[in-house]
């Protein structure tokens, strides 16, 4: 049985509908990439899953049970965590305090629990910066805190929204090299990523969104560049 799935998921903002029936499946321990142009609805999809936008109960299922529209903090308790777009750290609090808030409200861990020490082992620079307020960190360091916070929620599936955005290539590599250590213990990942090549390499399966619909899905290694560009920009564009 799939760990997390969406079924004809429809969501939007007020009268504006941003997603028009999304079917997504995430299996335990797998890495799923979610790509698509700006405004395609990737963040909206993650936010809907997380309970940050209103959706009908049966549109999101966890372990086969309907959980759509569940409050975010309850989703965390059930094992779903998010590394949100824009990092969203707690300003005025130190790195350590940011991490601690997450571990103090975490789900019951499956297998070896994530600890602050393990997060510091994953991103050693954070150990040095433990007592620094997060607003004084570089963008890459902030992203590491945000990922660490997500991990300390002890998720079974971690939704990552553009964790490479605005970071130096070296830092992006460092962060992506850490991801296999996350999936190694059975945590599934959903990666929203602008860099299509990176998304393809880092994932087993891939979904492409265009204007609120899935235009392509498949095994990442089987999908060709042409398929992706057709799905990414729309068929009309590919025919040009």
């Amino acid at each position: 049985m799939s760990l997390l799935s969406t079924h004809g998921l429809i969501a939007g903002y007020g009268d504006m509908r941003a997603l028009h029936g999304i079917d997504l499946v995430v299996n335990p321990g797998e890495t799923v990439a979610l790509i698509g142009a700006n405004g395609a609805g990737k963040s909206t999809l993650l936010r809907s899953i997380m309970g940050l936008l209103p959706v009908a109960a049966d549109m999101v299922q966890l372990d086969g049970a309907p959980v759509g529209g569940t409050q975010p903090h309850r989703m965390v308790q059930s094992g779903v965590a998010i590394v949100p777009e824009g990092r969203r750290l707690f300003a005025g609090m130190t790195v350590e305090e940011n991490l601690r808030v997450a571990s103090e409200h975490a789900a019951a861990p499956q297998g070896q629990p994530w600890t602050q020490e393990r997060v510091y082992d994953l991103f050693p620079i954070l150990r040095e910066k433990a007592r620094t307020n997060v607003e004084n960190l570089s963008g890459g360091q902030q992203q590491m805190v945000s990922i660490g916070r997500g991990l300390l929620a002890q998720p079974r599936v971690l939704l990552c929204d553009e964790i490479s955005l605005g970071l130096a290539p070296r830092v992006v590599r460092e962060i992506y090299e850490a991801l296999p250590q996350v999936t190694a213990q059975g945590t599934a990942l959903v990666l929203v990523e602008q860099d299509v090549g990176l998304a393809q390499r880092a994932s087993q399966r891939l979904y492409c969104l265009l204007e609120g619909r899935v235009t392509l899905e498949g095994r990442s290694e089987d999908i060709s560049r042409d398929d992706i560009s057709a799905a990414y920009f729309g068929a009309s564009h590919a025919l040009d």
Partner: peptide
Amino acid sequence: RSLRAASADVEAAAMVGVNP
């Protein structure tokens, strides 16, 4: 800590399991 987190960014606090 949960209160300071909620006052910094209440939605982000909810995303790490805090019940606002």
